[in-house]
Design a protein around this nucleic acid. Structure first.
Lengths: 154, 154
DNA sequence: GTTGAAATTTATACAAG
DNA sequence: CTTGTATAAATTTCAAC
């Protein structure tokens, strides 16, 4: 990753649909050079994919929460079982495996407070791996979608 | 949002760089129809943008954490001041304003455990709005990038 | 709202520096 | 690794349904 790659990565984070021509123009190289750079960034896993960011309200997900889950057992099968199940739940946007008071944090988004409660008691609380959980309503989310490469630690 | 819009939104979440032709082919309409649909979805704010998903390790962000922050005062100026400051910190990926034990949750990603500590004590703890905070290391993150529209609540 | 076709713009491969 | 050029493909507009 040199300066050019960093610039490409920055621009494609802010707009994944930039044409290759425009991208090349902005970083100051020929389109064919730019195309090859992007191809390599994808191949090497630096760029993992391109995704549309969709308004949650439009998806009828007006209520968001962070749910901190504590497992009954801290065994690998316990983690894997819950992770596997959760990934099939449409309510869940992100799952974090964490240290600390909780073991897993879920970011969920659903239609209503009632649906949130239904998710918690019908889906989550019925899982045998789950001991207990705490729920925080999300009033606001601010996403930074353009991340720069941090400087090397010297 | 009819069935066609939902299909477009679904496909563009999984691959924002799908060509308009391919998108049109998959949902079964003419390219010009598809183009107009996408244009309207953007105009109406359903599609908020297109972003490249970049590997955090490639950005030298190998250590992630969730930081639950408690404010000294629960006044609007207190929230706004911290939100404003945080948005200029490159370490922060997402900020959640939440209810519950914490008032704000930060998802941060930095170079090393040492840098995480530096972030916490030098940046966060020095803010006058901050009372205290708790930090959970993130061992794993599973992102669901394709969200379907949830059914109407009847 | 949708379409097909024309005109414009872009992506892509590749030979060469 | 980079570039310019040639070819193929896609985007975009628009008159008409």
């Amino acid at each position: 990753m040199d300066e050019l790659d960093a610039a490409i990565v920055r621009l494609l984070q802010s707009d994944a649909r930039l044409s290759n021509r425009e991208l090349a123009r902005r970083i100051g190289v020929a389109p064919s050079t730019c195309l090859e750079r992007v191809r390599l960034l994808r191949k090497h896993g630096v760029i993992r994919g391109f995704h549309a960011d969709v308004d949650l309200d439009a998806l009828r997900r007006e209520v968001q929460a962070l749910v901190t889950v504590r497992l009954r057992k801290h065994s690998r099968p316990s983690y894997e079982a819950l992770k596997g199940t959760v990934s099939s739940w449409p309510e869940v946007l992100t799952l974090f495996v964490v240290s600390g008071d909780g073991d897993i944090v879920l970011h969920v988004a659903v239609q209503s407070p009632e649906r949130l409660h239904a998710f918690l008691v019908d889906r989550l609380a019925t899982r045998p791996e789950v001991d207990r959980f705490e729920t925080s309503l999300i009033f606001q989310r601010v996403h930074n979608r353009v991340l720069d490469q941090l400087p090397e630690v010297s």
